[in-house]
């Protein structure tokens, strides 16, 4: 049943997206000049960064070879998917529907990102479509294990969304930790389902939590939760721990990445 709707939705979505694409292209043309100037500025930085990344990657590969480490928690296989619909019942159900399903290898609880950062996880699949719950959902069971990349790596969980500022809440950080603004937050991969090192956002503000035992950081997400048209579904490269897998089968309805 849901596949049939998915098929109809993609049938309608494809031509509409084409038409919308034309309009967007026209709009883009207006801003080309300004953007070009800006981009040229970035380009100079880019070349330098690229060289640096290249040498670092080489060094990393050499070192892992010396240490005989196989794979890292950050390894993943991206799968490209196109958004065919979005739940009109927004605010309660921030979900999008994409055109890849279990027959393409999508599984429940996989991480989903756009080019800029993590946007959510797979909530359910059918053979040809899958439903993705966005991080901006108000659902309290929407939890993701995350790491804060400061001087020392700090771990916490992404729990909840602040609708007013459109910030995510990173909870469970140790109270004595000094957290600076603009530090990067990535997935930790320790939940067992998500790959590690997928960017989530930047720290905006830190407050002590209700009982003063932990700290809560407000995270400004990197990705835009509104204008999503193409997403990547990530298959974890590292093996999924057995406990998580058994747990998943035991409670299919409750899908936390914890």
């Amino acid at each position: 049943m849901k596949d049939t709707t998915g098929w109809v939705q993609s049938l309608v979505a494809t031509p509409t997206q084409y038409v919308v694409g034309i309009f967007e292209n026209l709009k883009d043309l207006q801003n080309t000049y300004e953007e070009n100037k800006e981009l040229k500025k970035h380009l100079e930085d880019m070349a330098r960064l690229e060289a640096e990344v290249y040498s670092l990657e080489q060094e990393n590969a050499e070192l892992t070879e010396i240490l005989k480490i196989e794979g890292s928690i950050g390894d993943y296989d991206p799968m490209q998917a196109t958004v065919i619909s979005r739940s009109p019942d927004r605010l309660w159900h921030e979900v999008i529907i994409v055109n890849k399903g279990s027959s393409h290898g999508v599984e429940k609880n996989m991480a989903v990102m756009t080019a800029r950062g993590l946007i959510g996880k797979v909530k359910s699949t059918t053979p040809f479509t899958s439903t993705i719950q966005l991080l901006s959902a108000l659902d309290p069971t929407n939890r993701i294990s995350a790491a804060l990349q400061g001087d020392k790596k700090l771990f916490g969980t992404i729990e909840g969304y602040d609708k007013e500022n459109e910030w995510l809440l990173l909870k469970g950080l140790p109270v004595e930790a000094k957290i600076k603004k603009d530090e990067m937050v990535v997935t930790s991969g320790l939940g067992g389902v998500f790959p590690g090192d997928v960017p989530i956002g930047k720290v905006m503000e830190v407050v002590p939590d209700q009982f003063g035992l932990n700290q809560t950081a407000y995270i400004k997400p990197e990705a835009d939760f509104y204008n999503i048209s193409h997403v990547m579904i990530l298959t974890r490269g590292m093996t999924i721990p057995k406990a998580v897998e058994e747990n998943k089968e035991a409670q299919e309805s409750e899908g936390d990445d914890l």
């Binding site: 709707t5 109809v8 939705q9 309608v12 979505a13 509409t16 997206q17 919308v20 958004v83 065919i84 619909s85 979005r86 739940s87 009109p88 019942d89 927004r90 605010l91 999008i96 529907i97 459109e166 509104y226 204008n227």
Partner: peptide, 27 residues
Amino acid sequence: AFLFVFEGLFAQLFPADIFNGDYIFVP
């Protein structure tokens, strides 16, 4: 059925960031 699909498509394509994305418009 067309209106049903249209609602999903509208939610997807409607520029949600007008008015800073403060308001949610449900078709």
